[in-house]
Amino acid sequence: MFHLRLVRDETKIGFMRLRRVTLALSAVLSVLSIVLFLGVGLNLGIDFRGGSLIEIKTDGPADLGQLRETIGGLGLGDVQIQEFGAPDDVMIRVVEQEGGEAAQQAVIANIRGALGDEVEYRRVEIVGPTVSQELARSGTIAVIAAIFAILVYIWFRFEWQYALGAVIATIHDVVLTIGLFAALQLDFSLSSIAAILTIVGYSLNDTVVVYDRVRENARRYKRLPIVDLLDLSVNQTLSRTIMTSLTTLLALSALYIFGGEVIRSFVFAMIWGIAVGTYSSIYVAAPVLLYLGLGREGEGRSGGQAAAQENGAA
């Protein structure tokens, strides 16, 4: 029976040879992301900035110009009106109004009054100043807490170099994802935080698989130079890395194409995160171990020999 082979058996690609290039590339991209984040900033959605959002469906293609005129005349400050997935689907975003919680409510009443009952109101979201500040805070805490909790777990399961390496790779992925949001000015909402946390989980998953193999090989091949050890481990796990990224990307592309406009940017962020996470587990997480001075088993570790035998017997 024919079996599709994505990766040849027993590849011997010298991933670590490229480490200076890839680490430099990652560093440049990370710095660029941070600069974009600080300079341009994120296009914060109403979840974090407060304000309101209305999605309407019109009878036939929407006349955006006329909508802008009608709603622009209401004096609501900065109003964004754009097509949302289909020509008869329009998203209206209004910035937070001065005057506390009640002022946000008035916006919706105003817009409903101006547009009348001819359009279908598909979605209305209003986030007041109190909640938006809380959401921004708990979102930030969530990402930091997740990274920290996972750091502790990996530290518990591996040596500290692995934990630090995994966290560096994960932060790299998070930073690059935030960079993407800043560069493309994608709407950054609560679901973006969910996307980032999923990326954190996925990226670690990938990194842990590579590290697991590094640890196993380190016990088995005690004399192998560390660069070769890392290369061997990445090559051994390469077909799995590619397979899993592909199945996940297949499922996500189905969601991106058919899942509807509401979650499209959420899925887009995840697709990017999976791609970056796959790259980083090979080109960032593995070479970083070199620079963190990964100790070989047996060097001042009494349990090393026993562990090696146990694994060698497998």
Binding site: A142, A146, Y153, T198, Y202
Partner: peptide, 19 residues
């Protein structure tokens, strides 16, 4: 196990802080 527990940690934190 390692790979899934890390994702599980992220999911649990998301549950507690999300709405």
């Amino acid at each position: 196990l390692d790979a899934n527990i890390t994702t599980l940690i992220a999911a649990i934190i998301l549950f507690y802080l999300g709405s």
